[in-house]
Simulated assay, not measured.
Amino acid sequence: MTLLCRLLSHIALIILLSACSQLTSVPADSIRLSRQLALQLPAPNALGQPFHATQLVTGQYGNQDFNGQFQLELTENKLVLLALAPWGPSLFSATLTPNNLTTSQTSVAQVDVRYMLADFLLTYLPYDALKQSLHGKEITIKESATRREIWLAQTLIIAIDYAPNPNVTAAKSRWQNHIHFHNHLRGYQLEIKTLTFTPAPLAQSIMAEPQPNAEP
């Protein structure tokens, strides 16, 4: 195993283990982000127009860094999030349909894939869809063209900055922005850079269907 892969698995495990005990009583259609906050999983089409994309995600937790490449696919009835290891194979995946969430991961990726999916949804869901999906007391979503903030009472818990992509000359899309995601609640940061983005209805999935609880 490469040093990069060990760092990715180790850091993600540290980030997620602190919250795992809070997930035991959460319904299958939601993800609990804290004791006061839960994210109800939306239908895939809440994210908008179908597309296929690849992204480079780098992150920081404490004084340690990690990165990975993601493949994303959105059709009318399905969202697929696939994380690739540096040597090529899949580390983990999440497939969201209107009635089901299926996750798959290798033993190398000791993470809760639902949290990866939650960060993705918090970043890209349109404002109205996100407002309907977040549940808890005293939640406030502050939104502008370049920034999204999620507040719990008087505490800022998540801040997302959308920096325009200089390579995009058409109408700006957040799918094509460079993004800084800061989870103040759990103390980690992500930088998301979209490498390729193709908005188009897809006749069929170009990704293989993940199998639940797959092992390498």
Rank of each mutant, 00 (worst) to 15 (best):
T75W: 00
Q154A: 14
K172G: 11
N77E: 05
P212D: 02
N177C: 15
Q71M: 06
D119A: 13
R6S: 06
R32H: 04
L7K: 08
Q49P: 00
Q49V: 15
L156G: 01
L72Q: 03
F66A: 07
A12P: 06
Q55V: 07
L39A: 14
A43Q: 15
Q176H: 04
V80T: 13
L96F: 06
T169V: 12
T95W: 07
I179A: 05
L47E: 01
R35M: 11
I157V: 11
Y115N: 02
K142Y: 03
L96Y: 05
A94S: 13
L17P: 04
Q36A: 12
A19W: 00
I179Q: 02
P210A: 07
Q105N: 03
Q189C: 10
L16K: 13
A109W: 06
W175S: 02
V26Y: 00
T97I: 09
K137Q: 14
L41C: 05
N177K: 13
T198L: 09
P50Q: 01
A159L: 05
I192G: 07
Q71K: 13
D65S: 12
I157F: 09
D161Q: 08
A208F: 02
A208D: 13
R148P: 05
L39N: 11
Q110G: 06
P164E: 09
L3V: 11
L79C: 00
S133Y: 05
Y124W: 12
S144Y: 04
R174I: 15
P42H: 11
L56A: 11
C20L: 15
G68E: 05
Y162I: 02
T196A: 10
E149M: 07
